[in-house]
Design a protein around this nucleic acid. Structure first.
Lengths: 314, 314
DNA sequence: CCATAACGATTAGCAATTCTGATAGTTCCG
DNA sequence: CGGAACTATCAGAATTGCTAATCGTTATGG
């Protein structure tokens, strides 16, 4: 017995014959001629080397042999699995299910992702989102290129092989202890001369901001670096120095620090969502991108309404 | 997506390509030409409405798309079930597995079946023997004819539609309390004149023996009937009367009763194993029949060595 | 007891499928 | 820039799979 002998169509015919009791009715049910069903069963029996039906002859219904019973059981199992596979594929095609590997970095994880994940859970509950976080774009790019990630939030320059859509612009701002600076923008020159708090250099947005600052003053005096944005804020609050960060990295509810625009402004970082151009995306990825754009637009709008350079809000 | 789109051969090709990385190697592995594999995958993709592989072009291996990953997973599942079905059928063909419905009657259950079941467990551990017991052959015949039973132990005349092989001959004997009769055969005339113990009339072997006795003496005086052979023996022991039973119904280890041959002998009942002629038998049934013949021969031999009509053995 | 009806097997022929072999097109590598 | 390693595509051949018509068998009803 070879698996190639078990043609699903033959098995379907077997089931139909077993259920209807005659080859003719089974044929009608399946849309075949009686002859076709007869031949299919004959082929099946030849492959098995045994009959699956006893034919009493005349107008009496055929009857399953013990072998037929066994094959019928297996046939039902096979067709059930086949139908389930088809259903699973259909669900995946509709973007309703399947794994979706998403790359992200800290401020996106904090400010944007939760909203997107919640929206995805509503729109496509079956999609299993697997997150991978790194503050270094290079990690995310590599994961995208080797297929570990389907889509990823990124900042800055996109490699050749990737496609990206911009979600929002995230300006660099200065973060200082509450009340330490007069209302209004702060001059970049003032900031770079003093002690600075920032993120480690393996963070892409830190490199972005730092290189912009270095264009003004080659020597920067970083007194503390941490990947934890809360720790950055705490150090600023403690008076150790000023931080220059993308606005998304700043907790808007923290009243102990204040945010100032920079004078002149640094080039804002662009938060984007990227995927490999030459790789076919899972259908759920498209939905994820759309929802990300919506959520990011909302975040950007909320950011625009916040008042900087002034007394902290409520 | 229709299940008919999921041809197992296409799925096998998908798996082979995914594992080897190229269409050509997959083709070699499957015994196809590269062209065939290419066309199979193309058909699959057309049916799915999506690519399953990204072809980077040039000498680099192809890569599964997310859709391809899903289909691959399902393909493995489908083929695994298919292979398992084929294996199950093969095992059944070899008589190694599957259900086997066996009919029996009390004395066969006691004297023959245990040995056969034990032998089957050794020879074909996967065969699930389902027993159905009735002392009336008619029940067993009916079950054989409607397919409830595959094979059955029976006694006496076989209907047209069944085939049977004789296993052993089982003589009728007289059972009396130990020491109540002189050594040697008992005349049937002596037996029929006294009170008798026997089985109910819905038992085929009782009908068989009783009609043989009635040929000698039309009026029989049955004082007790029970389907329980142990109860028959107990009543005999208690002196209520004599029993005329097939030898198989008598417990050989019971020293409180003694067995006498009858003079003249009644026609012995024939213990047979039967099945429906026009029904294809499960392969395990043949083995069961063979083992039954062996075991029954052993039982008959043991029976022949026992000494009747004399002082009870050990 | 014969006519009829219900059923599966068989056959011939046609259509669709499914291979093969050859070839063209693409990309990488030296 | 040429060769190597791929896949796609095409035409044609082989095979498969279906239909329609017909035959043989068995039960049923007059």
């Amino acid at each position: 017995m070879d698996v190639s002998a078990l043609d699903p169509r033959h098995l379907a015919s077997l089931i139909a014959v077993a259920e209807t009791g005659t080859f003719g009715r089974a044929a009608a049910e399946l849309g075949y001629s009686q002859s076709a069903v007869s031949q299919q069963i004959a082929v099946l029996e030849q492959a098995l080397g045994a009959s699956v039906f006893d034919r009493p002859g005349g107008p009496r219904p055929v009857e399953l042999t013990p072998m037929g019973e066994i094959v019928l059981t297996q046939a039902r199992r096979v067709l059930a699995v086949l139908a389930d596979a088809a259903a699973e594929i259909t669900r995946f095609e509709g973007g309703e299910t399947g794994p979706l590997a998403v790359g992200t970095f800290q401020s996106a994880s904090t400010a944007i992702l939760p909203g997107v994940v919640a929206a995805m859970r509503d729109a496509a509950p079956g999609v299993q989102i697997e997150l991978q976080e790194s503050d270094d774009d290079a990690d995310l790019f590599a994961a995208l290129c080797d297929g570990t990630l389907d889509v990823s939030f990124v900042v800055g320059e996109i490699p050749e092989s990737l496609t990206a859509v911009p979600l929002m612009s995230d300006p660099f701002v200065a973060v200082a202890p509450a009340g330490s600076y007069p209302t209004g923008p702060i001059a970049v020159n003032d900031v770079v001369s003093g002690p600075l708090i920032g993120q480690p250099l393996d963070s892409s947005c830190q490199r972005l901001g730092e290189s912009a600052l270095r264009a003004v003053a080659p020597d920067l005096h970083y007194v503390f670096r941490t990947a934890d944005n809360g720790a950055v804020a705490a150090m600023v609050r403690a008076g150790m120095g000023v931080a220059v960060l993308p606005l998304l990295c700043v907790d808007p509810d923290d009243n102990t620090i204040e945010v100032h625009t920079l004078q002149p402004e640094l080039p804002a970082r662009s938060v984007q969502i990227a995927w490999r151009t030459d790789r076919t995306q899972p259908p759920s990825a498209q939905r994820f991108v759309e929802l990300s754009a919506t959520v990011a637009a909302g975040v950007a709008a909320a950011m625009g309404q916040r008042s900087f350079d002034a007394a902290p809000a409520s």
